[in-house]
Design a protein around this nucleic acid. Structure first.
Length: 809
RNA sequence: GGGCGAUUAGCUCAGCUGGUUAGAGCGUUACAUUGACAUUGUAAAGGUCACAGGUUCGAGUCCUGUAUCGCCCACCA
């Protein structure tokens, strides 16, 4: 290594990435007899740019992958692309300014494939530039044929077992996207709205006030509900009322009515909210559907002028009419939270359609039991899973009336509605493009048509453990790796990805999908704004950050928060990583210069190890075993802290200063060769300890010197060796700590005497316990050197540690 | 309204199963240093550990309550 070199990450990082790929350093070996560690990497949704949040969550998981490799595991760390379904469609629609529903299926599918292929390359480059130790040979795409085949086989299996049903029922629906959605895809948004008091008329012709924010649903009004205990309406229960547009509806009671709200009487329409759905079902009301599947009003006898309008325009229209008729008693603006579709922000409506559902409500308890068998890191994340599971109100709706996704493999008889789910053989099918063949329905009809829907993307991505396990690339291990070892993911998708995956694994294997679940938090911009698909991360673009600061430094920042904790991105923190890179480089330069100058050979062991050397070696081993303890618990920041303490304080600030005297001193003395030996092994251990966090600079330093001695291709193929050494090395560790406290005392003493640290002194007197003195006396030379003292004296005295310095004349 | 998390130095955050003067980095001040270090080192200033009770010989750490912030869920008449 040229000692005048500066570390240039811009060249080095891509070089090492290439080096790792060429030497297959991170390759999964199905024939290895090492213990397995399999990771269920999140396949990022192709829906736009990768943002800092991704970097945060992926880096944390990646550090674990590297750590497990260092611990001797056969790590299977794959990658995937979730490139189908609604998010991808919306991306393509936006980028190409087209609408899926206006294009031919074939044309739209091709455009989706082309767009996702483009993004795939951008994504891969970014992940590689971050230094992810993924085995890229294992990459899968959720739209690929093998995945489609697996998904359809699962569908068929579930259908045959009665786990999937098709029902006509009111379901959550997004008219903007033209599809039903799952409960998990609904999120809250604060919307302005107007609260109207409408004048209904009771049996006696008196005004009955009904409050609503949805007057446009009046044509679908089925009943008025009041609370059974509400005395105000006692006389009216069981009679009829007339709506402002002239319909006659019954007044019924139900204890879901809140007497405090509005006038205490509420109208039930099909459908305004979940309670309406409940009342229609419970009171067996006959639903009136007033809009078509595009969300436009149908031709209605009781409101013909709404024809063709959407909800918003319809509301304006009907308000205008009611206003004129004097039926609006009051109105006030309010702001309230509405359920909107997370993909497009449009308020979610209820719409009666035919949908496919996976049964989840009947197995809530089983799902919870499975959840309990999983190790949640951090543990409190389990609570979120539990709350969500207990609060479920709908089965999992898995059909989507969209285009680009895995086709729902079913046909129905046009005449009697019977369902046919054909056997899935060696190829996925698309009922929209191919007929079922020559088949006659039991009703005698030959007209069988495609279901026409695609599957919810979660139906596919909840199978990632299976996709990984059943990949043809697994060789002898194919199908033998379930459950996987670990799933890393962020906390916002516990209710979707984690939940559905647990459901799938339960139905398919009666098993948990993985042993450990590593849940990371979100990274927030400094103002507390979430960095996500929507906000795009603003000025913090991952590619730019890496280009400016290096992947190692960016990675280091991303490991600076507790697992599961939302963190603020503080650009100043990157400096910490950059400083560490410089420090590692310079410490290495120093170490290597001495090793090379003295032609150090790893195989030649020194006759004896100098005491301080023994102590720092023990300390290094101890630091490593402390890191193991933390990393076994997915506790990155503690591991990082242990490293920093050891490297910065113990090694650089103190050990290197202690040992300089011997290094620059008599080369024939045994203390010299002992120092070389210790520098070699300690610095190599330092590189290993930092390697999971900063793979590039550590590889650079390894290759600069160690590779030719260790004869292992890459630092990242070495194994961490450290016993849980606290007991074994107790004595050595204590000696080291004592040494440090004397060094600190000596420095303070020099400071007090207005001496520079480099100033020579006549004598240094160390006072302390006799037993300590005995041990320290062994390292007298080092202590003399670091103090620049000509003589050293030990004085026995109980308890207090002190250092006295005698100045030179 | 319910659940979960957070509240520790000016800023960003650690503090594991409760134990002597509460830590790191950045920032601030002083001094030193460029023969590993486009720097680094040493020293210093800076904290009623959100607040109020409680358990304990002892609490930032456990319990109860309050406040503020964030996330998730519910309410959506």
């Amino acid at each position: 290594m040229n000692m005048n070199d500066k570390y240039d990450f811009k060249n080095s990082e891509p070089n090492w990435q290439k080096f790792w790929a060429e030497n297959n350093v991170y390759g999964f070996n199905p024939d290895s007899d090492k213990p397995l560690y399999t990771i269920d990497t999140p396949p990022p949704t192709v829906s736009g740019a990768i943002h800092l949040g991704h970097i945060y969550s992926y880096t944390q998981a990646e550090v674990i992958a590297r750590y497990r490799r260092f611990r001797g595991f056969n790590v299977r760390y794959p990658f995937g692309m979730d490139n189908n379904g609604l998010p991808t469609e919306r991306l393509v629609e936006k980028e190409l300014n087209i609408k899926g529903k206006d294009s031919s299926l074939k044309d739209f599918t091709e455009k989706c494939l082309a767009t996702t292929e483009k993004y795939k390359i951008v994504y891969e480059e970014l992940w590689q530039s971050l230094g992810l130790s993924v085995d890229w040979r294992l990459e899968y795409s959720t739209i690929s044929e093998p995945v489609q085949l697996l998904v359809q086989k699962v569908f068929k299996d579930f259908y045959d077992r009665g786990l999937i049903t098709r029902q006509e029922a009111p379901a959550l629906f997004c008219f903007e996207c033209g599809t039903s959605v799952a409960q998990a895809e609904v999120e809250e948004d604060e919307k302005e709205s107007v609260f109207y008091d409408l004048a209904f008329t009771d049996k006696d012709g008196k005004t009955l006030t009904i409050a609503t924010t949805r007057p446009e649903l009046l044509p679908a009004c089925l009943a008025i509900f009041v609370h059974p205990n509400d005395l105000r309406f006692r006389e009216l229960v069981g009679t009829n009322a007339t709506t402002p547009i002239g319909d006659v509806v019954p007044i019924l009671t139900d204890d879901k009515v809140d007497m405090e709200k509005g006038s205490g009487a509420v109208m039930c329409c099909s459908y305004g909210d979940e309670t309406d759905v409940y009342w229609v079902r419970e009171h067996k009301l006959k639903e009136k559907l007033i809009v078509d599947r595009n969300g436009k009003f149908k031709k209605l006898d009781n409101a013909p002028d709404l024809l063709g309008l959407n909800f918003v325009d319809g509301r304006a229209k009907i308000i205008e009419k009611l206003e004129t008729a004097g039926k609006i008693l009051a109105s006030k603006k309010i702001s309230h939270n509405l359920g909107v579709h997370e993909r497009c922000g449009t308020p979610i409506e209820y719409f009666t359609t035919v949908q496919w559902f996976v049964k989840t409500l009947p197995i809530k308890n089983e799902i919870l039991e499975q959840g309990q068998k999983i190790n949640w890191y951090p543990a409190f994340m389990y609570k979120r899973f539990e709350d969500w599971t207990l609060g479920l109100k709908w089965d999992w709706c898995i059909s989507r009336e969209r285009f680009y996704g895995i086709p729902l493999p079913a046909y129905t008889c046009d005449d009697c509605g019977k369902i046919f789910v054909p056997e899935i053989k060696d190829k996925p099918i698309d009922p929209r493009l191919e007929s079922i063949g020559d088949l006659t329905c039991s009703c005698g009809s030959k007209k069988l048509s495609a279901d026409g829907n695609v599957l919810d993307t979660w139906f596919t991505s909840s199978l990632t453990p299976d996709i990984n396990n059943e990949s043809d690339l697994n060789g002898a291990m194919k199908g033998k790796m379930f459950p996987l070892s670990m799933r890393p993911q962020a906390h916002d998708i516990i209710r979707t990805w984690a939940f559905y995956t647990i459901v799938m694994a339960y139905y398919r294997h009666k098993e948990v999908p993985w042993h450990d679940l590593m849940v990371s938090g979100h990274i927030l911009a400094k103002q507390g704004v979430k960095i996500s698909k929507k906000t795009g991360g603003g000025k913090y673009q991952p590619a730019e950050l890496i280009a400016e600061h290096s992947a190692d430094a960016v990675r280091y920042v991303m490991c600076g928060a507790k697992l599961g904790q939302d963190a603020y991105y503080d650009e100043a923190e990157v400096e910490k990583g950059k400083k560490l890179i410089t420090k590692i480089f310079n410490a290495g330069k120093f170490v290597f210069s001495h090793l090379e100058e003295n032609k150090f050979n790893k195989e030649t062991k020194p006759a004896e190890i100098y005491p301080t050397d023994t102590w720092i070696l023990a300390k290094a081993e101890n630091a490593m075993s402390e890191m193991m303890k933390s990393l076994d618990q997915y506790d990155l920041i503690i591991a990082r802290q242990r490293f920093e303490e050891f490297f910065w304080t113990d090694f650089c600030d103190n050990y290197l200063e202690l040992v300089k005297g011997r290094l620059y001193g008599d080369k024939e003395k045994s203390g010299h060769s002992s120092a070389l030996y210790t520098l070699y092994h300690t610095y190599l251990k330092i590189l290993q300890m930092l390697a999971p966090f900063m793979p590039h600079i550590t590889e650079e330093m390894y290759q600069a010197y160690f590779a030719k001695q260790e004869k292992i291709t890459s630092l990242h193929q070495m194994i961490w060796l450290a016993e849980n050494s606290k007991e074994k090395n107790k004595n050595d560790l204590a000696c080291w700590e004592t040494t440090l406290s004397y060094i600190y005392a000596m420095r303070q003493e020099k400071n007090k005497l207005n001496l520079r640290l480099g100033d020579s002194v006549a004598k240094i007197i160390i006072s302390g316990l006799e037993e300590n003195n005995k041990k320290l006396a062994l390292a007298a030379e080092d202590l003399k050197n670091i103090a620049k003292a000509q003589n050293i004296e030990f004085k026995n005295q109980p308890e207090t540690i002190s250092v006295i310095i005698e100045k030179q004349d």
